[in-house]
Design a binder for these strands. Structure first.
Lengths: 127, 127
DNA sequence: TTGACGTGACACCAAATGGTGTCATATAAT
DNA sequence: ATTATATGACACCATTTGGTGTCACGTCAA
């Protein structure tokens, strides 16, 4: 949870399901810490830590708006992930077929595990 | 390091740099545990654990060959990762440009962090 | 000015992770 | 038959991770 020197990389950042969900949420629209909090059954402090990690990894950006801090997705860093993935393309023979999918955005929206569903559950009050 | 019930998912599996390097190595050609061992400054036991995690995540497959166990990449599961990534395509405006990269394999080979360089360093003997 | 609200910064914790060593067993090689 | 290899399975350990609570501080609203 250290936010100073070590820096989290993208791979570590997206390893956590909660963080992946947050990324999708923050892609939709910028949100404040407490707003994000409402979607998870964890404390504000915990949410804040996840946001720090995502920030550290360069996946989200934030700015203060009055007394609240708004977070939003900063997707560029995900290109790093894509780059890594591209290396393995050579092992997928049906490359062209997938490419079609890729272009046509045929996959709709969510998939691969995480849902964007709100969880809403009395968040153990933090204060 | 429990290999039974919990199951590791792809995201967790690739979160570790060592594991990412192993994946690239196993893509090139199937290798036995000790062979892999030679490339990392860690114990055989540790390597074995990483391989278990990768297996659990469905990223590698193995089979016995005499007294050794050969591991090899099983790239299909990486599609799950690509699927997840595709969701964020909508946030990258220069989609077509990247597509060109994607098709032409323009990015060469390795990138995004991990090198495939052998590390070779007296592996603290395990027995 | 007086609170209530939204956060950041700590201190603290239990469980998960990445490693190490040792032992037992199956397979190859002499 | 005997010995050297290649691993799997454990037991054990220090750190890291994901969470919780508490407190202090800046900002908004009465």
């Amino acid at each position: 949870m250290d936010a100073s020197a070590p820096k989290y990389d993208v791979f570590q950042a997206i390893a956590d399901p909660t963080r992946r969900t947050m990324l999708k949420m923050l892609g939709e629209k910028e949100l404040s810490v407490t707003q994000i909090c409402g979607h998870f059954p964890i404390t504000r402090t915990a949410v804040s830590k996840h946001l720090h990690i995502l920030t550290d990894a360069g996946l989200v950006r934030h700015h203060k708006a009055g007394r609240e801090t708004r977070y939003q997705l900063q997707p560029e860093k995900l290109l790093e992930l894509r780059k890594w993935l591209n290396y393995f393309e050579q092992y997928w023979e049906n490359k062209l077929a997938m490419l079609k999918h890729f272009v046509e955005q045929e996959d709709g929206s969510d998939s691969a595990g995480q849902e964007l569903r709100l969880i809403d559950q009395e968040p153990k009050r933090d204060r």
